[in-house]
Amino acid sequence: MRIVVTVKYVPDATGDRHFADDLTVDRDDVDGLLSELDEYAVEQALQISENSDDDVEITVLTVGPEDAKDALRKALSMGADKAIHVEDDDLNGTDALGTSLVLAKAVEKAGYDLVISGMASTDGTMGVVPALLAERLGVPQVTLLSEVWVEDGTVTGRRDGDAASEQLEASLPAVMSVTDQSGEARYPSFKGIMAAKKKPVESWDLSDLDIEADQVGLEGAWTKVDSAAERPARTAGTIVKDEGEGGKQLAAFLAERKFV
């Protein structure tokens, strides 16, 4: 079975993030890393491989700048078999729709039975790419799974919602995404780190994928960022003083914010 895991190299969420003049993320002043939510996808791929009697080959795929190789390297250190890096200057500013096009072309070129994605990136947090990718590939999508099994050409999983849990099933080939409840991602072992540098990393550009420059990048984007502003500083919280009505006030507060 061939599994392709899509991963994203994101700015460290604990770092001081800024936008560049063209309102894309300024990556110069902040460290990047493999999106934590994608680590869950890599973990599930590794578990599927470990629990399978058949040979499973795990390819990690990223679309991103030169430094995105760090994200691939971490995934390879965790245990993936090989990596594909799609890198092209014309990709700067690509939106979710454009990204799904590049991923779809790359996944098709690589060959796949199952694509696994994280539930969202930790920077854009849109969470739409897995669904877009499945549409482009014309295969079933089973998204936001918290538990996953792959058996006899079928992927089965549980999606937990606010009111109910759904059991989903799709025949392969398919696209699935997994949540941060799917199981803690492993740390790269020292052996894995040493082995990673011997694993193949392919580099593709847009011409390798028969994509024209105007289909992607800021020019080709379907969405446009008009403005960006810093989040306002946190304000003081509400203090509820219990004078007999504390419980009611607490409940009202929670209800108002839709926690209960």
Binding site: R186, Y187, F190
Partner: peptide, 22 residues
């Protein structure tokens, strides 16, 4: 147990004996 999986106990053991020497 996690330290074992990381490879902490093999840091002084050569590769030919299964470690990851640093």
């Amino acid at each position: 147990e996690q330290m074992k999986r990381l490879g902490i106990y093999g840091l002084a053991v050569p590769e030919e004996y299964g470690g990851t020497p640093v």
